[in-house]
């Protein structure tokens, strides 16, 4: 269902979730939000559990810093304590644990948007409804094109080097190899961007030109209903977490 939702209401809802996660400093709320976002990704967006777990790794590592200082070593950092006190956190739970789950909750809320939104449709919606300038919008789209192309180019560069050095292709490049590939990859990205810019210009894209846009699916009543339901569920979660001990 989320994949068919208009990107802008969905963005608003996800931003509301992230904002709530930042202002409500309760462990139960962060856990509920994290679980809810994960369930949405698993059930509605049908993201495989393995992929979700991999996606959580960077968020978990980031949050783990707070967790280790405040829970494992029983020495709350001044920063975490200050945040907990400023936002009404109680002394009965380690603030690091709340911060750990906050990172995970924010990460999963962002993932809900990123994994259920067509990037092209999102950029077009920004151009159509929020007046994102067309050259900037198409530059964003071009950057999205470039990610897989850069990966392919990186792979080809690595294969060419492996061949030259007479060794098999490593699955993950060692640091020295990664550093030596940075310049050629950057050069490729610059050349690629130059060619794309030339093509855009030749095909009539300009900053100040009169431009129309391909009609996009409009925002519908169901988009509004999903947005309202999502916000109501958020308020309910805040209320429920307030009733829980932590």
């Amino acid at each position: 269902m989320l994949t068919t939702l208009h990107p802008l209401p969905k963005l608003a809802l996800c931003l509301a979730l992230i904002l709530a996660s930042l202002v409500v400093f309760r462990l139960s709320f962060q856990i509920l939000l994290f679980v809810a976002a994960t369930l949405v990704l698993l059930i509605d967006a049908r993201i495989p559990l393995r992929r979700l777990l991999l996606l959580m790794v960077p968020f978990a590592l980031f949050g783990f810093g707070f967790f280790t200082t405040s829970v494992l070593f029983r020495a709350e950092s001044g920063f975490a304590m200050q945040m907990a006190q400023e936002q009404g956190g109680g002394p009965d739970v380690a603030p690091g644990l709340v911060l750990f789950f906050r990172v995970l909750a924010c990460g999963m809320a962002s993932a809900v948007f990123a994994l259920t939104t067509d990037p092209g449709r999102f950029v077009r919606a920004l151009m159509q409804h929020l007046r994102l300038p067309a050259p900037m919008g198409f530059a964003l789209l071009q950057a999205m094109h470039m990610v897989p192309d850069l990966r392919a180019e990186l792979l080809q560069l690595r294969m060419a080097r492996a061949m030259r050095l007479g060794r098999p292709l490593r699955r993950v490049p060692v640091p020295t190899e990664a550093i030596s590939l940075a310049i050629p990859l950057l050069a490729y990205a610059i050349r690629r961007a130059t060619r794309a810019a030339l093509s855009f210009e030749a095909r009539g894209l300009q900053r100040d030109g009169v431009r129309t846009t391909l009609p996009q699916p409009p925002m519908t009543r169901s988009d509004a209903i999903v947005l309202a339901t999502g916000l109501a569920a958020l308020l309910l979660t805040v209320w429920i977490s307030g009733r829980l001990p932590v």
Binding site: D118, P119, G120, V123, F138, L141, Q142, M144, H145, D149, R192, R195, A196, L198, S199, F200, R203, L205
Partner: peptide, 8 residues
């Protein structure tokens, strides 16, 4: 491959 503008 290097000069297309759209996403789809």
């Amino acid at each position: 491959a290097q000069t297309l503008a759209g996403f789809t």
